[in-house]
Design a protein around this nucleic acid. Structure first.
Length: 235
DNA sequence: AACCAGGACGTGA
DNA sequence: TCACGTCATGGT
């Protein structure tokens, strides 16, 4: 599936990295670089640019997973509030989260929206996580968990387990369709494979690229008309 | 005051 | 398979 778009995909990555630098995803509540990224205004959680060893502990892996659920169709600043509420309850551990009664759980995650759905999703993924017993999940296993779709599965694999899975989100499709590099009706898996086949299978690159796309989209593709003054048009 | 947010799921054609 | 409505809260 390689084509002349190969150059574009790599070229755009280099451009974005030049523009914004390393993004340090996935943010964690407690890490040594906490609060060190001034470009992430409104967020006080720990992005960790140039550190690709995180998450390290079992709890940090779980924290990333919880975050992927909470941020579904929700801004990170909102998801973050929910995450901190859970932390106050000592519930950034699957066993603890499962012990919360329904009202407590929903109240904690309320700022992230969709509290009824996400309460169920969090319980489901928590049981799944415990049953893993420290092993790595496979993509199809994750997809079988209620509340885990394509993007969440790839986010968990890439950011929690450091697997080379490219994460596609609405921004990705929006930007690349607007630049006329892909059809606007391209499917998730098709677009994902386009990126994966045209990039080296480097986890750090995958992590940065997706984060850079989100950062770029927030500046130029948040609202219609999309892509006004997008510097990527000057290749 | 609409519109959007680091989506997933259920439904009906 | 696929388009479409639904889910909830918070920020711009």
């Amino acid at each position: 599936m390689k084509s002349k778009k190969v150059n574009q995909i790599k070229k755009i990555y280099k451009k974005l990295y030049m523009f914004y630098g390393p993004q340090g995803w996935w943010p964690l509540m407690d890490c040594k670089n906490k609060g060190s990224n001034p470009t992430k205004k409104g967020s006080f959680m720990g992005y960790h640019p140039n550190n690709y060893d995180l998450p390290k502990t079992r709890e940090q892996v779980y924290e990333v997973i919880v975050g992927t659920i909470l941020t579904q169709n929700t801004s990170w600043t909102s998801a973050e509030k929910a995450l901190l509420n859970l932390n106050e309850l000592g519930a950034i551990k699957p066993e603890k989260l499962l012990k919360l009664d329904d009202d407590t759980l929903k109240k904690a995650i309320k700022p992230a929206g969709f509290m009824n759905q996400k309460a169920i999703y969090l319980r489901e993924i928590s049981r799944f996580f415990i049953d893993l017993k420290g092993k790595f999940p496979k993509r199809d296993e994750l997809m079988a968990v209620r509340g885990v779709g394509n993007e969440t599965a790839d986010s968990i694999l890439l950011y929690a387990y450091k697997q080379p899975k490219f994460v596609i989100d609405t921004y990705t499709k929006r930007i690349f369709a607007h630049l006329k590099l892909v059809d606007e009706n391209i499917g998730y898996m098709e677009l994902k494979e386009l990126f994966e086949s045209n990039l080296p299978g480097d986890v750090a690159v995958y992590q940065e690229y997706h984060a850079l796309i989100v950062e770029h989209a927030k500046r130029y593709y948040r609202r219609k008309p999309y892509g006004v003054d997008d510097p990527l048009k000057n290749l």
